[in-house]
Each structure stands twice: as C-alpha cells, then as structure tokens.
Design a binder for these strands. Structure first.
Lengths: 231, 231
DNA sequence: CTTTACGATTGACATTTATCAATTCATGCC
DNA sequence: GGCATGAATTGATAAATGTCAATCGTAAAG
C-alpha cells in the first residue's frame, strides 16, 4: 500500500482516533487487493469475514429478494463497508461488486473485534460511525417511503451537486441503470423521471446533469435536512 | 419505578453487561414518566436530550417529509428508542407518540454518554445494539424496495406470528391505519392487501388475523431470512 | 336505546411505477 | 469507416398504489 493511501485511511473518522499501534495492527493484518470492474467481492448470506475499505475505485452494495435486485449504496474512496456485520460476527445482508477497477483493503473481522476490545478510543469511533450509519439508513427509509421516484431523483441531484461543491453540475460516475436501482426504480422509470425534472430546472446531456434553475429544482424537490443532509 | 421494571430494563441486551454502578447511575438520573395515549413524546428536528426506554405501553416512531407522514417502527416494552441520536448528540430524525397509556424512562443524553465513556462493557453493548439497529434498517430498506405492499403485509404477518409463538394467529395491537403506515401504504391499500392475502391462506376478523393455510401463505410471501429474520 | 364519531371498507378513478417491445445512441473492436 | 454490443430511451400497456367519496361497522356518549 502506498503511504498516501495509508494516510487517507488513517484520516477516516473510524480510524482517526485509534491508537497508533491499533491502526498499525489493523493495516498489518489486512490484505490490499486489486480487482477489475464487475467482480463480486462479497455475497449476501456469507459469513462476514472481513471489514472492507475501498482505497481506490468504486463499489456497489446491492441486495436481492422477491426475485428482484436493488442497489443499497455506492461506496467511494475512502469508505468502509459492512462494519456492522463484522462487529456482530454475522452474515452479510448485502452483496458488493466493483463498478470500476478498484483497490480494497480487507481486514479480518477477528482483528477488528480484537482492536476494538483493546482500544477504547477506537471503540468510541466505531460507536459514532455505527450511529451515523444507522441514521443514514433511517433517512433512506424516509426517502423511500415518503417520496415519488422523480422527487428522489431531484433530491439526489441536489445532494450530489452540493457534495461536488455546488457548482451546478454533476457527472454521473456510473451507469444510469445503477442510479435507477439506487433510487429504487427501473431504468425506464429513471429516463422518465429525468424527463420530468427537465421541466424543473435541469438539463441532461449523457452523464452530465446541469442545474439550470436552482430555484425551480428546489421548488420541485422540496429537500428536507432530516432526509437529505449528509450524516 | 417498580423493582420488576428495573429488572426488566436490566435484562435488555443494552444494559445487561453494564457494571452495577453504571446501571444504577443511569436509572438514578432517569425520569420515569407516565403518558396517556396519543401524546407526542419527541419531535423530529429537536435536539436529542434523552434516551427513552418504553417500560409499559406502546410507542409509535414516525417521520414526515414531502407533505406526508410514515410510521418507522413500533416500540413495545421493554424497548429503547433514539439511541443513535443521543450518542451523536444530534437532532432526532423521528418523532414518537404513545399509542396507549405508557410508561417511559427518560435518561439524559449526557448521562448515557458519560456512562459509555466510563464503562467499556456498556460501550461494547452499545456497539452491538447499534450494529443490530443498523442491520434492521438495512432489512427495512430491502423490504421496502424489493416487495409489493401485499408481500410486505404477508411477511409481516408471518413474522408477527412467529414472534407470538407460531400458533397461527395474531391480534393487531393497534389501529390498522398505523399498520398501513408501517408497511408503507395507505389504509385503503391495506384493506385491499388484506383481501389479497385472504386468497393465500389468511382469514381476517377485525383485529384478529389467522393463518389458515401456512403453505399457501409462504408460497405467496416468499420470506427471506436476510429480510425477515429478526435482528 | 339512540345518537354520534371515527375507523375500516368499498367503489370509481387518477397517478405512479413496472413490464415488454422497439428503437436510438454510444462505444469499442475489427 | 463499418460493425457489433449493450446501455439508454421511447412507446404501448399492465400492474400497483394513491385519492376521493360513499358506506358500513363498532364502540363510546348521551
């Protein structure tokens, strides 16, 4: 692993307050793996053997049920996934696949649990991270139950734009079919939702979406901090 | 507070492993409050001042957005709510109201955070509880995104029955409008979903639902442990 | 006992979303 | 450049869900 990658991981809220030796042990025990796009890293219902840290690339978390499949989240560098399954030593509830060529640090679950038991500051950071993750999921449930597809899309665009600096444009980093699944709709429905928000201050050219009239988009999306503010 | 109530709280996974003095301090600092039905206990967007423990009665967690309202969960005795908001010292994402005459133990957030910092076993229990809560929410997202309303109802009934001992019948402990909101649909739609599952091995008389043909219901519901198994 | 209130149900209809098929568009490959 | 592949879009239709209004049922209040 490159030194700057280790530094970036160290900067994560989850690891930032851990003791030096805790972090060293976690990294020592971990494997840094490279994967091509489209590789399934973990499979729901498998035992959670490793905590995963996306160092480079892009990972899609998804799940199946009732004969269908849905995207739960997209993990960008530097991000952690399936912390909860590892801590409770349980099976995965979600699968993961690479959307791009990716580098992933895999830390054995046993090492994570031992580090937590040995380092109170690390355990405290885990509490904060889990609480944030929980609140993110509550927001997802609210988003899903309270809004129509077009509303979810409009608010997603506003969030992405804000995260990218609020310059009024967003480049989609993955296929639209993935976005449609993340937003809880079919690809066809996403196309129609895009057509809908075009009449509310948005222009779309391929993977680039521009906010041409923010007031109009805000009027349509009606964002709420209790759903849309990043946790 | 009655001794048996204190004992019941002590038995919760969240408190079971805490040191005796930690638990004593949490209970000492807490207020045991009685509320009539229909009282709003907490309001989303308010600062999370207290951890709440339902000692008796029934509490509905709900949230608003996009001009609508939805039920997030029902908390029965003995259950804890809004742990995550208290730990991160943030605002509530959900509101809470009593559905029945209820008794609620309210523990100041500062006390909970101090107890966590002072008692590693308590902090460890918090990690486990948060991880379970997180996984419950992941399951809720999957349930909501992957299933139709009637499927959610069928699986809810199977779950309730299993929790009640698997005897093939369930008495709804609250209004159907609340159930419809919990399942993410309108009351009218719930009536129709009930009509649908009547053709799949269920009979409904008022608040009592009977599973008359479990095989048929299972065939329709297609339950999955990764969505329906209690966390 | 009657009245009243309110939740639950039903019917009619509108909106939202999904499905299936056909077509267009973009991209990599030869 | 031309072709092949797969994603994205569009159209037609069906299914699921929501809305509005009317009715039914039940339980509390007088």
């Amino acid at each position: 692993m490159r030194p700057e990658d280790a530094a970036a991981i160290r900067d994560l809220p989850l690891f930032h307050d851990a003791r030096e030796e805790t972090f060293a042990e976690l990294v020592r025990a971990g494997f840094l793996q490279r994967f091509p796009p489209g590789v399934v890293l973990i499979n729901e219902s498998d035992p959670a053997d490793f905590l995963h840290v996306v160092v480079e690339g892009l990972v899609e978390m998804f799940a199946t049920g009732a004969g269908r499949e849905t995207t739960i989240s997209i993990v960008r560098p530097v991000g952690v996934f399936i912390l909860a399954a590892v801590l409770n030593d349980d099976v995965y509830l979600q699968s993961a696949r690479t959307l791009e060529k990716s580098q992933v640090l895999m830390i054995p679950g046993e090492t994570v649990r031992a580090a937590m038991a040995a380092d109170p500051a690390f355990m405290h950071a885990i509490v904060t991270e889990l609480a944030r993750g929980y609140r993110r999921k509550v927001k997802e449930v609210k988003n899903q139950k309270l809004r129509t597809g077009a509303e979810r899309l409009a608010n997603w665009l506003l969030q992405e734009d804000a995260e990218a600096g609020g310059e009024g444009w967003v480049e989609l980093g993955f296929e639209k079919r993935v976005l449609s699944s993340l937003l809880g709709m079919t690809p066809e429905n996403l196309s129609r939702a895009l057509a809908t928000i075009r009449t509310h201050g948005v222009s779309v050219e391929g993977a680039i979406m521009r906010i041409t009239d923010r007031q109009a988009l805000l009027r349509f999306a009606r964002p709420s901090p209790l759903i849309d503010q990043p946790e």
